[in-house]
């Protein structure tokens, strides 16, 4: 009993030690400093910021009511946008799957192929779709082809990386069993690995298709096809009422894509 009371009084407790508290204060300070520094440095012209509400009102009145006269052109451009997303996602699969195979530690043939695979994935992912589009517009000229290639080059990294991770997480035991039957490497992959990564594969491809629809809508801003071309043209000619229609159409398309993909995802999982 005596011991217990002694223990009760003599054991203070704090969540953080003195050193940890100092580190936390230092982190707060550094963060605050970075924010203040950034705001001072980027040189915002404040009168324009205060003017924003009037400008929004102004733009809104110029956009209203939306102009539906160009609906058939908009519909065609929307279809083109979806086609870019679908085609590029399909084509990506053929490149991304072999890359994910060599970029996964448990299936790659050797260290060199592992690094080649990872290099492809990193370089694909570190360049934004719009920048890929700029490059391909420069090479192939403006149009849908440049858009498809741009979306593809960005998607290879995404699908490849996630599929690589899915392959790394498989259960090794069925693979061992397939090897023991005397099956060749391709057949081991076909029976031991493919069934295990199938659900992940569909989920990833559906997700990427969804993302690609959204990415395809802005490709036109750099001349790589899709609804963005029309949007850019309308902004340039101050056809704000058409711009409003296009924006509504894009929102509609994205919502539709979202609904469709979430439905597909439920079917797959």
């Amino acid at each position: 009993m005596v011991e217990q009371t002694a223990e009760l009084t003599a054991r203070p407790w704090t969540r953080y030690s003195r050193k940890e508290r100092w580190i936390r204060f230092a982190i707060y300070f550094v963060t605050l400093f970075a924010v203040v520094w950034a705001i001072r440095d980027i040189d915002i012209f404040w009168p324009w910021v205060w003017d924003a509400p009037t400008q929004i009102q102004n733009l809104g009145s110029r956009m209203w009511p939306p102009e539906f006269e160009a609906w058939s052109a908009i519909l065609n451009a929307m279809l083109e946008t979806v086609h870019i997303a679908t085609l590029s996602t399909m084509l990506t699969i053929f490149i991304a799957l072999p890359v994910s195979y060599i970029a996964a530690q448990n299936t790659t043939p050797n260290r060199l192929t592992l690094w080649i695979g990872r290099f492809i994935l990193v370089s694909s992912r570190s360049v934004n779709t719009i920048i890929w589009a700029l490059l391909f517009v420069a090479i192939f000229g403006p149009g849908v082809l440049a858009g498809i290639l741009a979306v593809m080059f960005r998607s290879v990294g995404f699908i490849g990386k996630l599929m690589g991770e899915a392959i790394e997480e498989i259960d090794r035991r069925p693979v061992e069993a397939m090897e023991a039957t005397g099956a060749s490497r391709m057949k081991v992959v076909l029976f031991g690995i493919v069934p295990q990564v199938m659900p992940a594969f569909f989920a990833i491809v559906i997700l990427r298709w969804d993302i690609n629809i959204r990415e395809s809508t802005v490709l036109g801003l750099v001349g790589a096809g899709g609804i963005g071309v029309l949007l850019q043209g309308s902004i340039d000619t101050f056809a704000w009422q058409t711009v409003a229609t296009i924006l509504l159409a894009i929102i509609g398309l994205v919502l539709l894509g979202e609904a469709l993909t979430s439905m597909l995802r439920k079917k797959v999982l």
Binding site: A177, T181, K187, V188, Q196
Partner: peptide, 18 residues
């Protein structure tokens, strides 16, 4: 060491992969 997502028949036939 079965392939869980495949049918029993597919698992059995996997013995013929060689």
């Amino acid at each position: 060491n079965l392939i869980d997502r495949l049918t029993v028949m597919e698992n059995v036939l996997a013995g013929r992969l060689g």
